[in-house]
């Protein structure tokens, strides 16, 4: 059994921390783990993806289309872009934030309407959360990643405690309380499937 989790968003949104938390949680349970990250060019506001895979033995560090058990998305358009990677019964957990890409800003194309309902119409399980406001309430807009990890808990095969332990080993001490708040608010938010 290998579990596949993808974390997608816009370069600079903090997907590396999210993957580190999941990777640490998996390692603590004794799984083999591979995490494939993006550094460099696309971190400058481009579309970015991180793959996390864990199980008894993991070979490839990437995830193919139709293979992800969970996609965590920081942004609506990115959720739509990477949708093809989701498994048939997979879950998409997305922040409702919209960040306009340059072709939209320049007016050469438009940001698509109603992306989340379009995805739902495909019979895909979607958890849509206003993670940005939740993170802000928790103490920092940078904690969107941890809000989403909190929300993911219900669909992963990790317990809440396991993810909290991994969170504690993954963030610096002085940011811990903000991140714990962020995790709780993600964990507790209404799960609308």
């Amino acid at each position: 059994m290998v579990k596949n989790i993808m974390i997608v968003g816009v370069g600079g949104q903090g997907s590396l921390l999210a993957s580190r938390i999941v990777g640490n949680a998996a390692m603590a349970q004794g799984y083999d783990v591979k995490v494939s990250e993006v550094h460099g060019m696309s971190q400058r506001g481009g579309s970015v993806v991180t793959y996390v895979r864990y199980g008894d033995k993991v070979h490839s560090p990437v995830i193919g289309r139709g293979e992800a058990d969970i996609i965590i998305s920081f942004e609506q358009l990115e959720a739509a872009r990477w949708l093809s990677f989701l498994k048939k019964d997979g879950v998409l957990i997305t922040s409702t934030q919209k960040i306009m890409p340059m072709p939209v800003i320049t007016g050469s194309t438009q940001y698509p309407d109603e992306l989340i309902s379009q995805i739902k119409e495909k019979n895909i399980k979607v958890v849509a959360i206003d993670a940005l406001s939740k993170a802000e309430k928790a103490g920092s807009i940078k904690a969107v990643n941890v809000v989403l990890i909190g929300a993911m808990t219900h669909y992963s095969n990790f317990s809440k405690q396991q993810l909290l332990d991994a969170l504690k080993t993954s963030v610096p001490q002085k940011l811990l309380s903000v991140n714990l708040n962020a995790f709780e608010s993600g964990y507790e938010c209404e799960q609308t499937l």
Binding site: G11, R65, G66, L83, S84, P101, I119, K122, I124
Partner: peptide, 15 residues
Amino acid sequence: AEFSELDQTLPNRPP
């Protein structure tokens, strides 16, 4: 690979 996706082309997001 088997997968589903939206039936529209999405805007690119270049760096």
